[in-house]
Design a protein around this nucleic acid. Sequence first.
DNA 1: ACCTTTACTTGCATATTGCAACTATTTTTA
DNA 2: TAAAAATAGTTGCAATATGCAAGTAAAGGT
Lengths: 156, 156
Amino acid sequence: MESVREKLQIFVRRFGLLNAASCDNCCGEQVSMVQSHILFEVRRLQNPSMQQIADALGMDVTTFSRQAKTLEAKGLVSRRVSADDRRVSHLSLTAAGEDVLSRIDRYMADNIERIFSSMSAFEQETVIRSLGLLNDALATSGCCGVSQNNTVACCK
Amino acid sequence: MESVREKLQIFVRRFGLLNAASCDNCCGEQVSMVQSHILFEVRRLQNPSMQQIADALGMDVTTFSRQAKTLEAKGLVSRRVSADDRRVSHLSLTAAGEDVLSRIDRYMADNIERIFSSMSAFEQETVIRSLGLLNDALATSGCCGVSQNNTVACCK
DNA sequence: ACCTTTACTTGCATATTGCAACTATTTTTA
DNA sequence: TAAAAATAGTTGCAATATGCAAGTAAAGGT
């Protein structure tokens, strides 16, 4: 029998690969997979600081700093120093950045649609509800991305 | 409203982080995250060839070759040349490898239990069934890990 | 004013990755 | 059956990603 862990592991891996394929196929050399995750989060959390994004992605701020610089150089994000606190920089998508991200969106949406198309309407709804449940449970349990000092890395 | 894509993306990222934490927390310097995925697959596909594992993980064979060498050097997997075809090497877990993997298993199982504990029995069952549905749908759709030449990378 | 904390950046050393090119072993084919 | 093509896996190499330690600069606390 397949364990829950196994199901999760395999699902996550497959979706990760889909994600990678998405970067490759619709914006080729433009962005790497981490970079597409960054674009995704910049849009999701509106006007986030560097630290916020790094936390959301569970990545080291120093690594993030460099990736942000790269994305800025590519003209996909822009940076604005906060008026309140001049230490913090807020990132936002440029028009080009939004464009890249929406191409990725479209690719993912197509694939998700194809994936879901093999299910009945009822199944689809069940699956979507389950994903919501899982996300809530993950956020509540606070056990993802917990580092040794017990700081939660990602579950905002 | 949160889109399905958003739900999936976030869930996958969180689980990925949990996975990373799992490597860190229970076998620290021992194995990286990709390496734990490799151990996982070596066990799952019994006596797989190099190519098979690389395919399952959607990774380049050359990268895999090096990772395999590292894991062998660490004494976590062992390699046996096939009798049928002396080009292929089959990998298997050593006792040490099984040990590491089962520590990761335990860590993951604990976390998964904690995550699921906030749900009702009914919800748990729904979620687990949904994961099965999703995996089947992903495998059927053949859209994960499809590279430019249309070869499916992972959905065996 | 001084000390501490916070946000972010850089130096450095290491690890990961993919492509092209290589060896070794089948398999095909002419 | 000998030569050609395909397959499994390995290296060279150059690019990229990563994390830690140490730095700068700006707030905040006392």
